[in-house]
Design a protein around this nucleic acid. Structure first.
Length: 517
RNA sequence: GCCUCUCUAGCUCAAUGGUAGAGCAGUGGACUUUUAAUCCAUUGGUUCUGGGUUCGAGCCCCAGGGGAGGCACCA
């Protein structure tokens, strides 16, 4: 003892883990339960068995087992040998026969464990298994009389002992606080949780395939930004010690990706964790994921096309259909999607024709007539957007491109070639939520400087969300950026749409929460 | 930031202001075709925290904490 460096872990006593003296234990509270299981570990080690072996060779995942032998007749016995592994989810002990259900990432399967087959010692070990333990199983394929496909083990190896009891096997884990804080427990027990994150994964994987097929290159740009820009939002701030430099966590990746377009990379995208220091709600998490892409020689029309393709393809890949359920209604996301100008929505909502060229006093009066709050510094364009949001946004259920945002609220978008008060910009709305935002990119360095100066003025005037003037970005534009279309899609919100959930926390593995206690 | 709701055993939930209970999980026992296995027995509580009212508080009141929903905020 003492020579093996593992001793210090292996010999850790029950009381060390729980601060409870073994002899005083009774009952089955959490501490007692953990103590009981820790005692099983000691027992195993005394017998020379390792409750935490290093690896296990499996021949099949459980869905492979089911797809290969799923058609066996009831009562079938085979010589087909498999090695599978999974977590013990349920156990039914009927004396000399134990039925257990194990689960791996792909499926569940029943184990048909016979004392006569595995022998007395191993059978005793099987009886000592707790729900939640990981096991590796070597055995043959069979079905029960009732036809349940099962593995008949010749050997059952404990791969990892669970010290903590699992949530209720039938009712699962429903306390939302616990589900979000202990996502591992949520994933163990709740099928829906596993499904939501599979949908999210399939969505992102689909995006990557679609983008690759169009010649886009995936890039990674800085998370730590010396300037705030690319969006209208409050940033997180941080500090680099050695450089003694104030930094912001990025609120968008736009300005860096467009630098790459200047550099000649032509088609780039980033799946970017982004940070905004704002409120938390069912639609907002302080860190979230955006996919932004930029395509040289394209404009907003090209970008709307690829938006439709990305999302409809992802729906197919993640769900097998483009039909999703929204507000209890079946909605087909199949393209093409309607396109309608923001000023037309706002005009309909207000019952009066609206245009950002109108005098500010007139627009303010219309806003007041519709109980739309207006800040002093806002111009006609910003007010029109507010009127749109108040009167129309929530009613857009089916995918719709809202287009032609006023110049005032679009400092990085190019002016509409047919209307100098509007931009060639769109936002995609589904279920009343903004899912995507794109435009023909402003590439005139002189005009961009002027727009930045307006932003800076707003910031100086006290707007905490306004961007600042980014000299390096302007220098990049001075080298010449080709005509470019750009797009951002909110991955979390798209995953929400596909998964059919109403809270962003359902599609973020570890949402931001206050610390426990 | 504001409003409403919520917090009881490891999990899911009960409990007129009057002895804190059930199911699952756990423990002991029976059972070689179960599948939310079943049957018998049984352990387990800082009722989120701190005050207060009351003869008596899980329950009523006040303050605080966590969470959820809504509003506000939010390109």
């Amino acid at each position: 003892m003492g020579r093996d460096p593992r001793d210090r872990y292996c010999q850790a006593s029950v009381s060390e883990h729980t601060n409870v003296d073994n002899s005083e234990l009774s009952g089955s509270g959490l501490i007692a339960e953990k103590t009981r299981r820790l005692a099983l570990l000691d027992e195993m080690r005394d017998q020379g068995r390792n409750p935490y072996p290093y690896r296990f060779d499996r021949t099949h995942t459980l869905d492979e087992v089911r797809s290969t032998w799923g058609d066996l007749e009831p009562g079938a016995e085979t010589d087909a040998r498999v090695s599978v592994a999974g977590r013990v989810m349920r156990k039914r002990d009927s004396g000399k026969l134990v039925f257990a259900t194990i689960r791996d990432r792909s499926d569940d399967i029943q184990l048909f464990i016979s004392k006569a087959v595995v022998g007395d010692d191993e059978f005793a070990a099987v009886k000592a298994l707790d729900l939640g333990d990981w096991v590796g199983v070597e055995g043959t394929m069979m079905t029960t009389r009732k036809g349940e496909l099962s593995v008949k083990p010749e050997r059952v190896t404990l791969l990892s002992k669970a010290i903590r009891p699992m949530p209720d096997k039938w009712h699962g884990l429903s306390d939302v606080d616990t589900r979000f804080r202990q996502r591992y427990a949520d994933l163990i027990i709740n099928e829906q949780a596993r499904r939501n994150f599979e949908i999210r994964h399939e969505t992102v994987a689909s995006f990557r395939r679609t983008l690759a097929s169009h010649g886009f290159i995936e890039v990674e740009t800085p998370v730590l930004h010396p300037e705030v820009g690319g969006a209208h939002a409050r940033p997180f701030t941080t500090h680099h010690n050695t450089l003694d430099m104030h930094l912001y966590l990025r609120i968008a990746v736009e300005l860096y990706l467009k630098r790459l377009i200047v550099g000649g990379m032509e088609r780039v995208y980033e799946i970017a964790r982004t940070f905004r220091n704002e409120g938390i709600s069912t639609r907002h998490n302080p860190e979230f994921t955006m996919m932004e892409l930029y395509q040289a020689f394209g404009d907003w029309n090209d970008v709307m096309d690829i938006t439709e393709e990305l999302i409809t393809t992802a729906a197919h890949d993640a769900l097998g259909t483009t039909v999703v359920s929204i507000r209890g209604e079946q909605v087909d996301l199949a393209k093409p999607w309607p396109r309608k100008r923001m000023i037309d929505y706002a005009s309909e909502g207000a019952g009066v024709a609206l245009h950002p060229s109108m005098p500010l006093t007139d627009v303010r009066k219309i806003a007041a007539d519709h109980d739309v709050f207006v800040e002093d510094r806002w111009g006609s364009g910003k007010i029109i957007e507010e009127i749109f949001e108040k009167t129309s946004e929530n009613d857009i259920v089916r995918p719709t491109f809202v287009t032609g945002h006023p110049v005032e609220i679009s400092p990085l978008a190019r002016v509409d070639r047919n209307d100098s008060f509007l931009t060639e910009r769109f936002e995609l709305f589904v279920n009343g939520r903004e899912l995507a935002n794109g435009y023909s990119e402003l590439n005139d360095p002189v005009e961009q400087r002027a727009r930045f100066e307006e932003e800076q003025a707003a910031k100086d005037a006290g707007d905490p969300e306004a961007g600042s003037l980014d000299e390096d970005y302007l220098r990049a534009l001075e080298y010449g950026m080709p005509p470019t279309g750009g797009l951002g899609i909110g991955i979390d919100r798209l995953a929400m749409l596909f998964a059919g959930v109403d809270s962003i926390k359902e599609v973020i593995l570890f949402p931001t929460l206050r610390p426990e206690q």
